[in-house]
């Protein structure tokens, strides 16, 4: 058995933080992605502009820089906004919230394109039949459109999640105690750089394999109404 110099438990705790960070960012990113896609497909010009600026900016910025800008910049921005409302207590954005914001924004920008493609691929007839059945806009979206979008978007979203999982390592630079930072701490006290970075790599691989399993299960489930066998 390899000797982790007593840091094994710490690394597992780091893995938990990594998973929490990835899942929370996924949720934020999915919401942003749907909103972004809706904005891009809407007939209101300013909404389209905002969505386009959002996806262009985020997709052109290195994720590391996005994390750093959010971590150092968000508090200042939030405080000046809060100041407008006469609220001058200070607002704290921790490393976790900053990480979720940065990774969620990144995921959302790419997910916008995935959702847009999926929304566009739904035949017009589906909309028309829903309306013919007397469904309202919300009903139509929730019962007819969304389940189909989900099925079409899943493979793309699955890929994005794998990217997100690896991007969580970047948040270690702002002090969140994820796998990567725990590995750094272990290296600084044991000097075993190769060992701990390799262990970290294997932990990410395991998380990747598990995620791939979950995604393929979800894909199968989403397709169940469609084909047999």
């Amino acid at each position: 058995m390899i000797d982790l110099h007593g840091f094994g438990h710490q690394l597992l705790q780091g893995a938990l933080v990594t998973v929490e960070l990835a899942l929370a960012s996924l949720v934020v990113g999915l919401v942003l992605g749907l909103l972004g896609a809706a904005a891009k497909l809407s007939s209101i010009k300013p909404l389209q502009w905002i969505a386009n600026i959002y996806t262009t900016l985020i997709r052109g910025l290195p994720e590391l820089l996005t994390v750093l800008i959010i971590y150092f910049g968000a508090t200042t921005v939030l405080m000046s906004i809060a100041g407008l409302f006469g609220y001058d207590e200070y607002i704290e954005i921790g490393a976790f919230a900053a990480g979720v914001t940065a990774l969620g924004l990144t995921f959302g920008a790419y997910a916008t394109e995935v959702f847009r493609g999926a929304l566009q691929s739904i035949p017009k007839g589906q909309h028309e039949s829903a309306v013919a059945l007397g469904m309202g806009t919300f009903h139509k979206f929730y019962r007819i459109i969304l389940p189909q979008v989900w099925r079409i978007a899943l493979p793309g979203l699955g890929n994005l999640f794998l990217v997100l999982l690896k991007d969580t390592a970047l948040v270690s630079v702002v002090g969140l105690e994820d796998i990567m930072r725990k590995a750094n701490i272990a290296v600084s006290s044991t000097k075993e750089a190769f060992l701990f970075y390799l262990v970290a790599a294997i932990m990410y691989l395991v998380l990747t394999i598990v995620s791939m399993g979950v995604v393929s299960y979800l894909e199968k489930r989403a397709r169940r109404g469609l084909t047999r066998g």
């Binding site: 969580t168 390592a169 970047l170 290296v187 190769f194 970075y197 390799l198 691989l205 990747t208």
Partner: peptide
């Protein structure tokens, strides 16, 4: 599978600090 399944940051540290340990 290895290079797509692990963060680039880990790969860089493995090459830079990991390899020079030996």
């Amino acid at each position: 599978f290895f290079f797509r399944g692990t963060p680039l940051l880990v790969q860089i540290f493995l090459v830079y600090y990991g390899a020079s340990q030996f």
